[in-house]
Design a protein around this nucleic acid. Structure first.
Lengths: 294, 294
DNA sequence: ATTTTGTCTTTTATCGACAATAGACAGATT
DNA sequence: AATCTGTCTATTGTCGATAAAAGACAAAAT
């Protein structure tokens, strides 16, 4: 088991959906580009499609024989990459309670629990450490610093500095910059969600990420943009495990976003700053409320 | 060669200097605390000291038999941890020229060149990636983004935001906060260096780091403090490979520091901000000048 | 003249193994 | 009663090995 073949399985699944809409498949390089994988993987996919009798493959000809069934797909558990699995498993442990700040983190134990090798766990922890939630004692264990009130305050402090700066950058963007188009599109999704908020309020989380990332990008500063990864992951899991008042909260946030978007479009730095501040303050409150401290 | 025994060698060397000043050694736990290592390592050190005839060790008695000679020490090359070796080797490659932005980074090749395993290289690159100088293509190579003008500008932009915030935090520190004592001490080192600037200007780099880290700490924000790692490493290697006008530059920076320190001590936020801005601007200029772009 | 395919090589992701190091615990010593 | 030592176990850091995936190159097809 040297490497998971999740790339292959994921590509295979996506190729199945391509088959549904077409009666033949394009060239190998073309397929590779569409699926975002190398030709090696494309050929592996084609080989399997042939074996399963889904296509007839002879050199350039890749003719679809039948529509794929539900059973042809690989189950989703098998298409998640190892680091996604570790991340979920780890975040559940530290965010969904049961993990005290100061606790030791044991690589070996974590690896055994998830059923993977230590190397992957180590690499995950190293990558994860930049989020400020864990800390390494060299030659020894990791320490869980915990998703505490201080963490949230430090995080939001930097977030606010960065986003204010980005918002200022945004209003200064030239009129023909593609961000304005993206902004329009994001705005319309806001209206769509609000129109059917009771049924679709869970979709807010993803939209929120898209919107703020768009704003941060205007900073054109890799450190600011990279920092948004931390926000993303924290809010992502936060939303997932903390659903009290989700509907109300999300509706309010959507409305704040609309004001904020309007302010950005006005090109008025003062207005943008004010709308940004207002929204970030309430985002911070939401986050803080969800942290139950002793 | 499962693990380097650099911890042991480093501890052994430091134990040799302890021996010089004393005729017997303390208890094992006490020694461990002084050397910052576990008892296991302490016992390994004691065992070797006994074998080499430097001490006579019998349970609690650890009597020094003779003063250590130069030859008793492990050579410094052997006491550097693997990650330090990789870091130096890697930074030399990317900062000291010969590395174009956009270049691919090959784990295997790097590992072979340095003469170590791929795992260590991988882990180093993952850790290093947070500095924004390299970027990973999943399932494929790393890309060198390069120590470019943009990099320097993005870095200093964030640095300035953070340090201004920290400086504001610093002037608000209570009078009995230990940072004020540290500040006094750092200031006096400044005077010492300035008094003998021709001979000691190279010591500025380390002092600079100490001073700014002290300021950043006042933010009490882990993200701000952690970010300073990036500044540290960039300036560290920058100073090491770019020595044009070092004397003049360092003298000027020392003088700016003194103004800045005075301003901090005045507790006046306005003055502190101004001094901070002034110094950071010239630090940025220095950095930019050293980047030769096409 | 491109583009595609067949074939082959190189590199990455992941595992298990093992020495170095940390750490736990009971009995010995002060 | 507190600290220290002897002994033992557990964990980390590093390596080499290997399957998955990427990618190079020439021959074949349009």
């Amino acid at each position: 088991m040297a490497k998971q073949n999740t790339v292959f399985k994921e590509a295979y699944n996506r190729c199945l959906t391509l088959i549904t809409n077409s009666d033949h498949l394009p060239s190998e390089p073309e397929l590779g580009a569409q699926l975002g994988v190398s030709r090696t993987t494309v050929r592996a996919v084609l080989t399997r499609l042939t074996e399963t009798g889904l296509i007839a493959w002879d050199r350039r000809d890749k003719i679809v024989l039948r529509a794929p069934l539900e059973a042809d797909f690989f189950p989703t558990e098998e298409t998640d990459s190892l680091s996604e699995i570790i991340e979920r498993s780890f975040m559940r442990r530290i965010l969904a309670g049961g993990a005290q700040p100061g606790m030791q983190i044991n690589e070996l134990e974590l690896a055994r629990e998830i059923g993977i090798g230590t190397t992957s766990v180590r690499e995950f922890l190293i990558r994860f450490s930049r989020f400020g939630l864990i800390e390494k004692r060299p030659n020894s264990h990791w320490i869980l610093k915990g998703f505490t009130r201080e963490f949230a305050l430090e995080l939001t402090e930097v977030r606010e500095m960065f986003e204010l700066r980005s918002a200022r950058g945004f209003v200064g963007l030239p009129d023909d910059h593609p961000a304005w188009v993206d902004l329009d599109e994001i705005e319309s999704v806001h209206h769509t969600l609000l129109a059917d908020i009771d049924a679709r309020y869970q979709e807010f989380s993803e939209l929120d990420e898209r919107f703020h990332l768009l704003v941060q990008r205007a900073s054109r500063n890799r450190f600011i943009i990279d920092f948004y990864d931390i926000i993303t992951i924290v809010f992502h899991y936060h939303y997932q495990w903390n659903k009290t008042n989700a509907r109300t909260r999300n509706q309010r946030a959507l409305e704040e976003h609309l004001v904020y978007i309007d302010a950005l479009r006005s090109r008025d730095p003062k207005r943008a700053e004010e709308a940004c501040r207002l929204h970030l303050r309430s985002a911070r409150e939401t986050l803080l409320q969800s942290i139950q401290e002793p």
